[in-house]
Write a protein that binds this DNA or RNA. Sequence first.
DNA 1: CCATTAACTGACT
DNA 2: AGTCAGTTAATGG
Length: 222
Amino acid sequence: MDKIWYLKQLDIFKELGPKDISEIGVIVDEKNVSKKELLLEPEDKGKVYLIKRGQVKLYQLTPEGKRVISDNLGPGSVFGNFGGDGQGQNFAEASSDTFVCIAKRDTFFETISKKPKVAAKLMTMLFDQISLDRDYITAMASGSVLSKLKFKLVELGGKYGEQKGNRVKIKERFTHEEIADMIGVSRETVTKLLGALKRKGIIKVEGKNIIFDKEKLETASV
DNA sequence: CCATTAACTGACT
DNA sequence: AGTCAGTTAATGG
């Protein structure tokens, strides 16, 4: 990733003993943030955030000032703004009440670099993330709004879903507005398209969960 | 055309 | 009171 650097589901820490963890845990700060509170701004450099509890949205601002959500991280995730010089507009906001630990980036890296295995693991994770991002860019750049939405639903299904064969159920709750911000379209368009997909029987909404057949969705039109 | 903006509405919390 | 989903009229590229 360009300016922002983060990891998901830190099984990376599984390779570390308690001693190392406490070393990394040279935590400079711990913080409770309530929903909607801003955790990280572009100017906020040199820190590593570790999510203990809650959810954090990462987002950027387009030149027009529109917000684009790039990720939604849960407990165990690490993120931070490791910028070069001034460019890039990366923010992090609590999606729910959240508890984070904050450590110094340098300390974190120093500890990591003494552990080749962990460093290798870290690289693997970063490369995986990069290739995911490439798929993502392709889908976002080339597709219609419908294909972006389908792509995002499948992605959300993979990340927050429960799968039985082709049947996918997104467990987490997302508002139309959030989905819209993830794929860079208006909320009304998401409402309309989801409505159309629902009417066609391609997706189903059960309470707060979206359910769909992966095959059917991927080949669906409206 | 297709999507966006803006505005309004009813439902829900 | 604030959030969310669903609609519509007007606008724009």
